[in-house]
């Protein structure tokens, strides 16, 4: 009897550890595969009862340089091209431009091609089990937030290649908010033809910041953020569509990006309004003549708490 109990206790302790370890292994395989394999794949992003289809190519040429194309297949052309550390965005709104970047910013979080251990302070990784996705055996790993201020990401990874087959963003109640479902996966020894073409294509001019560029010190600051979020960008710019000048701050925990906007308003007070676009919340309120907006893939309570914590910088540094 004692033996059985001690056995159960041992299993009870070791099982979560084993699951954590399995999850780590699977995620490491994912980031390795995304960077090194030649693949041609299609997926749909499902949100708001709509499906957006994409085509995604990745390859590594003979010189070891990564080549990547991500195209939206419906509506106006939106293509992202990448050659090594140059990424070009081709969109209907803007003339094409390139920037130095090691990843493309699309529906797949860029951390998936990087080191998952960067997320360890904010998330737990749990290997849940196997299922069948895209006709393949898939390992389900849940990336679970350590606190209640973030959504969970569930990823289904191909047992054979480690590549992503499905991604779901869900709230803590398990309600599905947004998903990326792969519909086709082709792995080859050499890069796809379109990537070979890309290699000979001249990319648009690269925008660069001068070495001595410093991000401006803003007069507003965010006093509360969920643990793990760090500032990755601050600037003053005009919102593209409304031309409204704003003070802007962007924070990231490695997986999720949050934008905070502050601007004077012609209204003195306006109650909180928010809108959900898949997992992305856009929240807006006016307090004492100042408009604060928060946008990101976070629960609306978190966005509200961030918006409420925005305050005038008491003694600006420097």
């Amino acid at each position: 009897m004692k033996l059985i109990i001690s056995f159960l206790v041992a299993v009870g302790i070791s099982l979560p550890l084993w699951a954590e370890e399995q999850a780590q292994l699977s995620l490491n395989a994912l980031s390795h595969s995304i960077k090194t394999l030649n693949f041609s794949t299609s997926f749909v992003v499902v949100k708001n009862n709509e499906a957006e289809p994409y085509h995604w190519f990745h390859g590594v040429n003979e010189e070891g340089e990564e080549l990547e194309i991500l195209s939206l297949l419906n509506g106006a052309r939106r293509d992202i091209l990448r050659k090594g550390n140059i990424v070009s965005y081709i969109e209907p709104e803007l003339p094409p431009y390139s920037i130095f970047s090691n990843d493309i910013k699309g529906p797949i979080p860029s951390i998936f091609a990087q080191d998952f251990t960067l997320l360890e302070s904010s998330y737990d990784f749990i290997s849940v089990g196997r299922s069948r996705v895209l006709g393949r055996t898939a390992q389900l790993v849940r990336i679970v937030s350590k606190d209640a201020h973030r959504y969970g990401h569930w990823v289904w990874l191909d047992q054979e290649t480690g590549l992503l087959l499905k991604l779901v963003i869900a709230n803590r109640a398990g309600q599905l908010l947004e998903q990326v479902q792969f519909t086709h996966l082709d792995i080859s020894d050499v890069p796809a033809d379109s990537l070979v073409q890309l290699q000979d294509t001249e990319l648009p001019k690269v925008l660069e910041v001068p070495d001595d560029y410093e991000q401006p010190t803003l007069s507003w600051q965010v006093k509360w953020l969920p643990q793990g979020f760090e500032s990755i960008s601050t600037n003053r710019h005009r919102i593209t569509l409304t031309k409204q000048p704003v003070e802007f701050m962007m924070f990231s925990d490695g997986l999720v990006d949050i934008s905070v906007y502050v601007s004077p308003s012609n209204v003195r007070q306006r109650a909180v309004e928010f809108l959900m676009d898949g997992a992305t919340v856009a929240l807006n309120q006016v307090n004492n003549g100042f408009e604060v907006s928060v946008v990101g893939k976070i629960p609306s309570q978190t966005a509200k708490a961030i918006a409420d914590s925005v305050a005038l910088m008491t003694n600006p540094p420097k």
Partner: peptide
């Protein structure tokens, strides 16, 4: 319109973060 503008700008700024972060 306000929300649309915010969502669009958020996307744009995510792309531009590499400008200040890559170096």
């Amino acid at each position: 319109r306000r929300f649309q503008a915010l969502l669009h700008d958020h996307e744009q700024q995510i792309k531009l973060t590499a400008l200040v972060n890559t170096p």
